[in-house]
Design a protein around this nucleic acid. Structure first.
Lengths: 218, 218
DNA sequence: TCTGCTAGATTGTCAGACAATCCGGTTCAA
DNA sequence: TTGAACCGGATTGTCTGACAATCTAGCAGA
């Protein structure tokens, strides 16, 4: 049914999405280079189309490039991880505090939270975890805080993927901490909500750093 | 010497810059629309070129557009101003605190500060004020904090323009507050530096809001 | 072995075209 | 007279293709 054979030629959005998940899945490993022509061949589109998709990923931090050089999947350094999580703690903490004193919990955040709980201890959690945090920040009134948070979350997804693959945290732990944040928000306790959010983020950061240090000093 | 008649065809950067200052100067008034074809004619380039320049301004917040609609220069509402300055206080406060506990004051910040002082009481201050804040944040170690700050400063420039035109603050007042921030940073007092920064930003916000309210209730 | 140069690959920028979508005024019917 | 459907112009979304500028790497020569 529905539209028969329209086959909407393929937005450049589609390329962006494909490349994005391809990077997050580590199918394009960190350090590997992604040329415009490669993307052109891979998706059968014109180079400018591939180019805009790449540029979008660069602004999100999922790719890096300098002028006249090929775009590469970033290898996040220890400093990158620290910077990323600390910056996120600042912005997301402020956002959750605003939500606690002003708004109400968005439906998307609740459903992501329930899916996370339902998945059980060892279920993959990255998708729902990200969705939960994104939805919570998006539901808060400040548009600028949301925009800044979105700017960070691309790179954060790269990190969360690592946390999941290496089982540095379980779905149960995460769900528990999320529950605490939700309770503080519904109680209208902005200070506690911000504190729990920052603790949650820093906890995740420290697990990842521990893993990083263990691997790099064999 | 130098290259004789190369006449570097004009990067799309140039268009971006021109449009940017054209918006900040209010030559393109808030509310006016900027079509891709108009930019094409105005600069004698191809539409895709004009398009990318516009897209860049949109991501910076200096233009707004929805799908299939013409880009417009935003008319900042009261809520926009509050959101903008409050978000900026959060990010810039954190950045200055980091600078106070870690780094040293960048040379660009100092020179902008001196120019501001040398200009005298009633001199135009917008350019140096912006340069000072940008340089200070750029000199601090966190790359993500810098990126987020840059995302805000486009729209902030729109506001500072208003402050200058309507003489809501004098160069002297601003320079004095900047001096206080610099002193706190060199003293390594992160808490004080953050506090002064937030107060500086909120003060500017309140002047602008006062003006806004006076105009809208005649 | 080191230095300079050439060739291939890659990006930066541009021009032009067609389809899809939106906006305004006009026309027709109730 | 009022309201809603319709139609034409304007604008954006996307694509194709081309050429110039720049970088990287390998080869030749000292």
């Amino acid at each position: 049914m529905s539209s028969p054979a329209t086959t909407v030629p393929l937005l450049p959005d589609a390329i962006y999405e494909q490349l994005r998940s391809s990077i997050l899945n580590q199918q394009d490993a960190p350090g590997s280079s992604i040329t415009e022509s490669a993307v052109t061949l891979r998706f059968g589109v014109a180079r400018p189309t591939a180019r805009t998709a790449i540029e979008r990923l660069v602004t999100e931090g999922l790719l890096r490039r300098e002028a006249h050089h090929t775009a590469r999947v970033p290898e996040l350094s220890r400093d990158d991880i620290v910077d990323l999580y600390d910056s996120r703690a600042i912005v997301e903490g402020a956002a959750i505090a605003a939500l606690a004193s002003g708004g109400t919990i968005p439906a998307e955040a609740l459903s992501a939270h329930r899916e996370l709980q339902a998945g059980g201890e060892n279920a993959p959690f990255a998708t729902q975890d990200i969705a939960f945090h994104r939805a919570l920040v998006a539901g808060q009134p400040s548009a600028r805080l949301s925009r800044m948070h979105a700017l960070l979350m691309g790179e954060i997804e790269l990190c969360i993927g690592q946390v999941q693959v290496n089982q540095l945290l379980t779905a149960g732990e995460i769900a528990g901490q999320h529950q605490g944040i939700l309770d503080a928000v519904t109680a209208g306790n902005a200070t506690l909500a911000e504190q729990l959010t920052r603790a949650h983020i820093h906890g995740s950061r420290d697990r990842l750093l521990g893993h990083f240090d263990a691997r790099s000093a064999p």
